[in-house]
Amino acid sequence: MGDLVTYRALPTNSVDYIDPFLFLNHHGPQVYKPNNYGLPFGPHPHRGFETLTFILDGDIMHQDTGGGKDVIEAGGVQWMTAGSGLIHAEVSSDKFKKEGGPLEILQLWFNLPAKHKMAKPNYIGLQQDAIPSVEENNGKVKVNVISGNWRETKGPIPSVSDIHMASIELKAGGRFTTTIAADRNIFFYVVRGFVNVNGERAEKLNLVEFANEGEELTVEALEDSYILLGHAQPFNEPVVSHGPFVMNTEEEIHQAFRDYQQGKMGVWE
């Protein structure tokens, strides 16, 4: 994407989606020179799903037709519920474009169930210090809780679909065990490093797919690692997507395009 290096972990040739987790783009890691053009994601529409963006390095300047606007820096996250539809842009701040520096950003898309697809759009941006963290294994494991719960710690972002999400930093030798109900689908992506997951090895830039056969998940870092871990009840609904819209039927996709063209998702100023 221009000079942006991107790895797509979902969908792939072997996995369309892990209901309700639809899509993951991993941008970077890379270093931008001073006086760069930054991120290329100018104004574009969305309807029918949610996005969660992790800023590991660099920053994102967000703006949308629902009134959301801010700059989130390294360590922060952005959660946007597109719902009935909006237009948004995700670009680099003027400071980053002028000074350059390291950049690594991941964006994950969650489906919305049919009953929430036309919900009012919403945006939440959190800097790193607003995200609660839990340390385990004598500080070798740090869990950043974004939505849902981790042990007794509740994430700051409410999920209408009961999606639990965390980013987890592990030092070499760090280990944790957690329990996830067998009927919930697991999202597990290795951003950096090399880990053992229930006896199987997984390295960076790999998505791990699970069978719904047990409840215990044990992870051990073979080197310093960073993972995304989430889980959710599958919706078991039809998924019809076209570009920036994710709905349940082809007609709903056509209607989304008509609504966008008629300005019903807002008008970009």
Rank of each mutant, 00 (worst) to 15 (best):
D3V: 08
L4S: 06
V5W: 05
L10M: 15
P11V: 05
P11E: 05
T12E: 08
S14W: 04
D16H: 09
H27V: 12
Y32K: 12
Y32Q: 14
P34F: 08
P34S: 15
N35M: 07
Y37V: 09
P43I: 11
F49K: 13
E50W: 08
L52E: 03
L52P: 01
D64G: 04
G66N: 08
G67N: 02
G67Y: 04
G67A: 05
G68S: 04
G68W: 09
A74H: 00
A74R: 11
G75E: 02
G75Q: 03
G76L: 07
G76R: 14
V77Q: 05
W79N: 03
W79V: 15
T81D: 00
A82H: 02
A82L: 03
A82D: 02
A82F: 00
G83F: 03
G85V: 03
S93P: 00
F96K: 01
F96T: 02
I105N: 03
L106N: 11
Q107W: 12
W109M: 08
L112N: 06
M118W: 07
P121V: 14
P121Y: 07
N122G: 14
N122Y: 12
Q127S: 07
I131Y: 06
P132E: 14
V134P: 11
V134R: 10
E135R: 13
N138P: 07
G139I: 08
G139P: 04
K140M: 14
V145A: 09
V145Q: 06
V145I: 15
I146L: 11
T153H: 02
T153M: 09
T153D: 03
I157G: 00
I157K: 07
P158N: 13
L170V: 11
L170K: 05
K171L: 12
G173M: 12
R175Q: 13
T178G: 04
I186K: 10
V190R: 01
G193S: 01
N196M: 07
V197I: 10
N198K: 01
G199L: 02
K204C: 01
N206S: 13
N212Y: 00
E215K: 08
L217P: 00
E220T: 15
H231K: 08
F235L: 13
F235C: 05
P238Q: 09
S241M: 12
P244S: 13
V246P: 08
N248V: 11
N248K: 07
T249M: 13
T249F: 04
E251C: 02
E251W: 04
E252T: 07
E252I: 09
E252W: 09
I253R: 10
H254N: 12
H254S: 12
Q261N: 13
Q262K: 08
G266D: 10
G266K: 09
G266A: 05
W268C: 09
E269M: 02
